[in-house]
Amino acid sequence: MDKELPTPLSPRKGRGALSNPESRYSATVREPIDDGWSPEERSPLRTTVTREVAKGILSRNASPDIPFELSLNPYRGCEHGCIYCYARPSHAYLGLSPGLDFESRLFVKPDAAALLRKALAREGHVPTPIALGANTDPYQPIERQWRITRQVLEVLHECRHPLSLTTKSALVERDLDLLAALAAQRLVQVLISITTLDRSLARILEPRAAAPQRRLETVRRLSEAGIPVTVLMAPIIPALTDNEIETLLTQAAEAGAHGAGYVMLRLPLELEGLFREWLESHLPLRAQHVLARLRDIHGGTIYRSQFGLRQSGTGAYADLIRQRFRLALKRTGLNRRPIVLDSSQFRPPTGGPVQLDLF
């Protein structure tokens, strides 16, 4: 049986997670206790940014159900605060909480462009498309100041290297010049994540991301600039956002999207407890229904991590979602033609000597 939660926690304005539990690697566990004498005074939770000295910038993917081999993440943590973000458990590797720490204690990689240039200069580099935003959003708010994603795009443009870019931020429009130039050479596709069209739900589900209608406008502006755009309904949350499939795909097509895809809600590791807290606080009357539907698609458990099952699920409910999405794609004309990026134009970076690895 599911573990019953205590009295719902109080949400913080502009934050997704309600708590900051220790990670799975912590040797101790702390739990707040309310003795009833006085309400807890909570100071505003401010975002801190720490420079990270990275040795490398490209990560290689070996998961058979993820459609890319290389990824690049300019940031760790994400201030958008999406409660469903599957990247939250990665903050445990830093000794931090996947809860509030993930969205308030951020790490930047200021040398990302230089490290990328070094990686692309290595003999034998195979120019397979690089995925930006595979873990955290490359256009989260701190990109306005740090401009690391912009610098990375400049290197990829110089080297004519293919890439895909996933975001839910309108800030991507700042780089229309680079993206349009890359698109003209069939070197880029942009994926815009839209989870729901319900502004009230989006405000608590993904508190610091752009409003859904603003993201549709971003789809329109990118498409008008000749950039192929795929809309991702990621994730579909059973019994919460699944009723929007047809409407969301229709509006995506009207905005000029080229294609669409979806991923079912995934709750690995600490994310399950964080999402349960969120449900109990914001949507207590629907919490058990959502969790029951998750068990339906994961063989009686809240989450299965097996490749091929974790992103789509199995069973009657998962099949129904798959059929509805397929029919909506057919009706809207999305995904009629595949987006094929050109890897043949790659040229190694120039502009001075590059220090190669000794070993």
Rank of each mutant, 00 (worst) to 15 (best):
S97T: 02
Q145V: 10
P64T: 05
L18T: 01
R221L: 13
F107K: 10
L178M: 11
L176S: 12
F325I: 08
D177S: 13
W278N: 08
R199H: 02
L334Q: 01
Q145M: 15
Q288A: 09
E217P: 00
E123W: 06
L120F: 13
A183K: 02
L327G: 04
N243R: 07
I83Y: 10
H282I: 04
V152M: 03
R12G: 02
S71G: 06
A316L: 09
I227R: 05
A318M: 05
R276H: 12
P67A: 14
G313C: 14
P235Y: 07
V290A: 15
L265W: 03
I297H: 00
L132G: 00
Q311R: 14
E158Q: 15
L269N: 09
T48A: 06
A17D: 04
L96V: 02
A255Q: 01
Y25K: 13
D137F: 14
R30D: 04
S23Q: 02
L205V: 07
V172G: 05
Y303G: 13
A225F: 02
P212G: 09
S343D: 07
Y317S: 03
S343L: 02
G133V: 04
A119N: 04
H125S: 03
H298Y: 12
G333K: 13
L205F: 15
G273A: 12
I236K: 07
A183F: 02
V263F: 13
L283Q: 10
